[in-house]
Nucleic acid binder design. Sequence first.
DNA 1: ACGTATAGTTGAAAATGTCAACGATTGATT
DNA 2: AATCAATCGTTGACATTTTCAACTATACGT
Lengths: 156, 156
Amino acid sequence: MTIEAQDEQQAATKDRLVAAAISQDVGFLLAKLHAGGSIVNNRALAEFDLKERSYSVLILANSGLEPTQRELADFLSLDPSQIVALVDELEKRKLVARAPGKQDRRAKTVTATAKGSQLLAQAAVAARHAESEVLATLDDGEILQLKALLRKALWG
Amino acid sequence: MTIEAQDEQQAATKDRLVAAAISQDVGFLLAKLHAGGSIVNNRALAEFDLKERSYSVLILANSGLEPTQRELADFLSLDPSQIVALVDELEKRKLVARAPGKQDRRAKTVTATAKGSQLLAQAAVAARHAESEVLATLDDGEILQLKALLRKALWG
DNA sequence: ACGTATAGTTGAAAATGTCAACGATTGATT
DNA sequence: AATCAATCGTTGACATTTTCAACTATACGT
């Protein structure tokens, strides 16, 4: 078989299963796009020794909202103990700092350092490129629509 | 503090971080909706001793497309070894059967048994209800739009 | 016939997720 | 003021999932 014919057959069989009913299932579509996107995102962020998780924490630490670890756990749908590990690592790299909560001294707020902000600025560029790559088949209007629908599904 | 005031404050703080830039990130929105949806889906499927994974395999096995394990792995974004475990379990429960591929005897196609089809029919009802629950804040037209956009992002 | 590539399988290692306990602190109740 | 239940971050144990490298059997081009 020639290389070209092989490629054609692969292309033909690769998406053969799209016809199945599960391709109408939002949960499945979400999982699949998320899986593919994670690979692209993590590859883009690897240059800065970040992963999706640590990148998310860094963004929130840099938001000016001074989130507590508990809030990070709730918002990122992670167990509090995972936040500890993520913040530990970012703190060790001097990208974020922990501070005791103002009203509640049990809580610790996580804020980005200047170094963290700088790194984030660079990483954000790479993340935007990754997003474009993942959503390459959508035009700008469709991307906005998709974001709006996802946000509405999450927060009404 | 009264219970009502507590609830109000919780509601106020719960989504406080939505204001952060990451709420514009498709990767994050996908991850969060997927995380929440998985919990609802798995809870709905638990009644049938299925999870999202085994449910997906069962649907594809029941599609009439006679997918091979390799195709399942590619389509579900899973490692081939995980397909082995999933099919092993479904086969043990007599919900699917393995058959040697027709042209390629290395490959094994996975097809649903009558028992598998029956169980799937019931599980699909539960899965539809779960999906409605997850997407409760979207109307029917928006759900169709969301599905169309996700499919386009995945397959163009 | 031969060498290369691929399908499924197995098992080990690494990463992630889940959960229960603990000290410190808080806020409500007495 | 003293107490009691609840919450925050942390730790460590345990389960699940992911990732990867072998291996056998089969397929395919040369």
